[in-house]
């Protein structure tokens, strides 16, 4: 993380997005540092299997956020409280049950970011 969230173009094909917070990093970075927002419960660092399961190579739309509280985009994307960096607009993939449970236990309500939930409406459950 010391070098910031910049990912050079030659690494773009290794980019993955966390299915929970949608942060985009390379597989290598996930492995080294885990997910800066979700590692408390996803425990991605040094866990290739978890990285495979909980992050996705299939995502769409890159966002770079420098100020997650001021930015409306960040709010809209439910990125408030997350670290500044690069995020994805939409992340495909299904988070494994265990990961969802872990997230719930950690008090994080997992809401898929793959467009299956209409974000314009509040969900009631």
């Amino acid at each position: 993380m010391s070098g910031g969230a910049y990912i050079p173009p030659n690494q773009h094909r290794h980019m993955r997005a966390c299915m929970v917070c949608s942060i985009v990093r390379t597989e290598q970075q996930f492995k080294q540092h885990g997910c800066p927002n979700c590692d408390a419960f996803l425990e991605l660092a040094n866990n290739s299997e978890a990285i495979q399961e909980c992050t996705s190579q299939v995502f769409d739309g890159l966002i770079t956020v420098s100020d997650t509280s001021r930015s409306w985009v960040a709010r809209w994307q439910r990125l408030e409280g997350y670290v500044p960096g690069v995020y994805a607009v939409q992340v495909e993939g299904v988070l494994p049950e265990e990961a969802i449970a872990a997230a719930e236990n950690a008090g994080v309500h997992y809401q898929p970011r793959d467009g299956t939930v209409n974000e314009a409406l509040p969900t009631d459950s």
């Binding site: 770079t64 420098s66 985009v73």
Partner: peptide, 30 residues
């Protein structure tokens, strides 16, 4: 995507040099 990353890099640099970026976010819908 490259442009977004380039912006990110610039933001990184600004933060490193102690500035507060005035740009809050940038995104693309490729």
């Amino acid at each position: 995507r490259e442009v977004i990353m380039a912006i990110q890099k610039r933001l990184d640099d600004m933060v490193r040099s102690g500035q507060r970026p005035k740009l809050y976010s940038a995104f693309e819908r490729g």
